[in-house]
Amino acid sequence: MSLIEARGLSKNYGPTRVLNDLNFQLQRGSVVGLLGRNASGKSTLFRLIAGVTRPSQGKLLIDGQPAGPVTRRWVMYAPEVPCYYPAMQVYEQLLFLARFYPSWDHDKAQALLGEMELDPKAVIGELSKGLRARLKLVHAFAWDNDVVLLDEPFEGIDQPSRQKIVQLLFNEYRHQRQTIILGTHHIDETEQLFDQVLILKAGRLVCQRPIDELRDTYQQPLVQTLNDLTL
């Protein structure tokens, strides 16, 4: 049984149709690259899976349940924008989040803070863009969730640190039941992590295939395939 399933999923904002009749299934434990150009509907799809917005048509099911307050218990959503309280210290912010998730692991959060070189006493408003991005990753991997939604999680993190962080998170902190959906423009650095790729173009799903199949078919880097499919 698939963990995430979209059936005829559409989303309108006013008269504008942002997502149009999406149908896909994502398996538990897979790492999915959600790719597309700007305004292709990636962030809206993230919000729908996170259960923070409702579909205009169709269904989005997580473990058989419509995405919403119930499924948010096991779905972590890190939006593209910085969403943490600037007046709070890092540890206060994490403590606030931890109270809502019974599976929050304080030791793991502590270890992640160390790995991400984040000072727990630092005030969030004074953190650089890169350090705020690292805080999102601590939030994502410090508890035992089933779905991690990361919308441009590496923005602001320098390239050498990015590679180190990606390897660390996916090899040491991720658990095997976790389905991770990653929306990123750093495709060449994250491509090797993907099991499956969803490509959106103007709100339509133009590709949903396992990464190996995509490589076999196109015989070129993923970024080139993305360009070909979305131009």
């Binding site: 259960g51 307050p69 948010r72 779905v75 939006p79 969403c83 809502f100």
Partner: peptide
Amino acid sequence: YQLLALPI
């Protein structure tokens, strides 16, 4: 964003 993503 973080408030609406909470399970409440």
